[in-house]
Design a binder for these strands. Structure first.
Lengths: 209, 209
DNA sequence: GGGTTTTAATTAAACGTTTGTTTAACTTTG
DNA sequence: CAAAGTTAAACAAACGTTTAATTAAAACCC
C-alpha cells in the first residue's frame, strides 16, 4: 500500500476532477497546477510526468476496493440472490462515491490495451470477474440460480449499465426532465431507480422462473 | 442531407479512426492529414477547424440511421418481442459496422453536455428513446409485455451493455482467452453471444413469466 | 539546545516541441 | 482567365518538462 503525502493527494484529486471532465489529453498540467493551487513544477517534482501522475491516480484509487467486496460476499447467512443484490448496490455506490475516477476509467477503457493503466484496469476486471464467478457458482450449487449463465456477459450488463447511466447521467437527466432536482436529489433518485432496475433484471435471469 | 466530396469523406474517415483510438484531443490535425494522405492545410480549407471536422463527422454518421429502424418496427406481422429482438440485433450490427464512430460517441458522452456534438448526441438519444417507448407500449397493448417497465432504464441496459462490451472488446477478448481468434472470427463470436444474451435478458424482464 | 549543514520543498523563468491555424505562392480545373 | 484545389512555410500560442535559484524543514554535532 503506497503512501501519498497531503500535497500529492491534493494534486491527484485536482487532476482526477479535470481528467474526468475534459479527458487526459484535454487537460494540461497547468490546468492541474492551478486547480490544485500548487506550482507547475511540483507535478513533475512529485510524479515525474503527466503520464506517471495518471498511473499514480490509478494505484491510489485502485487499492482497497477488493477486501471490502470479498468480506461482504462471505457472509454465509445470506442467500446468493441477496448477495448478488448487495453486489449491485456496491457497484452503484462505489461509482457514485468515486464518480470522477470511474468516469476516467470508463473513458480510458475505450482505447486499446496498452500501457500501465490498461494493465491496472485489466487486473481490476479479472478480480471482479472472478468474484462474480464464485458468487454465481455458489448460487448454482445451492440451486438458487439456473445453470446456463454466461458470467462474462452478465458482468458486462451489470458494469455496462451502471457505467453508462452514471457516466452519462446528465443525458439521463435531460431526457427524463429531471433538471429541477438538485444534484444530491438526482443522485439519490438515480441510485434507487437503478438499484431496483438491476435487481429485478438479474432476479429474472439468474433464478428459476 | 448534407453532401461531402470524396476528399472530405477521406479526411473524415481517417479522423474517425484516429479519434476512436486516441481520442479527439489525443489526435493532432497533422496525424489526420498524414493518415488521410492530404496536405495539412486541406483540413482547415474543407472544414474550417478541427472542432468543425468533428461536428461534420457527427452529422455525416448521424444521418439515415432512423429511417431504417422505423421501417423495421412497422412490420405489422411481427410480434412485439420479435421486433424487440430485431432492435437488439440492429444495435449490435450498427455498432460493429461503424465501430470507430460509436467508440467516439461512447467516449464523448462522458463529458458533460456542452457544444454542438452534445446536442447531436442528445437528439439521437431522444429519437432512440421514443422509438423504444412506442415499441414497448405496443407490446403492452398487445398484452405481450408486462406493464411496469421503465423504458429509460431498459434502454440504458441495452445501450450500456452493447457499448461497454463492444467499445472495450479487447478486454473481453483478453479476459476470456480468445486471443487466438482472428478479428473477424471474434466479431462474429461476440455478436452471436451478445445477441443471445440480450434477447434472453429482455425476454425475461419484458414478458410475463 | 543553539548553530551548522544537509536535505526537501518551492518558485519563476526558460527550454525545445508540438499544437491548430493562416498565409501566400503555385497548380489544376472548368 | 477566373475559381477551386493544393502546397510548403510560417505563425503565435500552448504544451510537457527542466533548470537554477531560493526558502523551509530536518538532521546533525558539539
Amino acid at each position: 500500500m503506497k503512501e501519498y503525502s497531503e500535497k500529492q493527494v491534493q494534486i491527484m484529486e485536482a487532476a482526477e476532477e479535470l481528467f474526468s471532465e475534459k479527458g487526459f489529453e484535454g487537460t494540461s498540467v497547468r490546468d492541474i497546477a492551478e486547480s490544485a493551487d500548487v506550482n507547475l513544477a511540483m507535478i513533475s517534482y512529485y510524479f515525474g510526468s503527466k503520464d506517471k501522475l495518471m498511473e499514480a491516480l490509478f494505484t491510489y484509487r485502485g487499492e482497497n476496493s477488493l477486501a471490502q467486496l470479498e468480506g461482504m460476499l462471505h457472509k454465509k447467512e445470506l442467500s446468493s440472490l441477496e448477495k448478488f443484490n448487495q453486489l449491485i448496490d456496491y457497484y452503484i455506490e462505489r461509482f457514485q462515491k468515486h464518480y470522477c475516477f470511474h468516469r476516467i476509467m470508463t473513458r480510458e477503457q475505450i482505447a486499446t490495451l496498452k500501457g500501465p493503466v490498461s494493465d491496472l484496469i485489466l487486473a481490476l476486471k479479472r478480480n471482479n470477474l472472478e468474484i462474480i464467478r464464485q458468487l454465481v457458482k455458489e448460487g448454482q450449487k445451492r440451486k438458487e440460480f439456473r445453470r446456463n449463465v454466461d458470467i462474462s456477459l452478465m458482468m458486462s450488463t451489470l458494469v455496462g449499465t451502471v457505467n453508462h447511466i452514471l457516466s452519462t447521467k446528465h443525458y439521463y437527466r435531460e431526457l427524463n426532465g429531471l433538471q429541477s432536482l438538485s444534484e444530491e436529489q438526482f443522485d439519490r433518485h438515480i441510485r434507487k431507480k437503478l438499484s431496483l432496475h438491476l435487481k429485478s433484471l438479474f432476479k429474472a435471469t439468474l433464478t428459476h422462473e
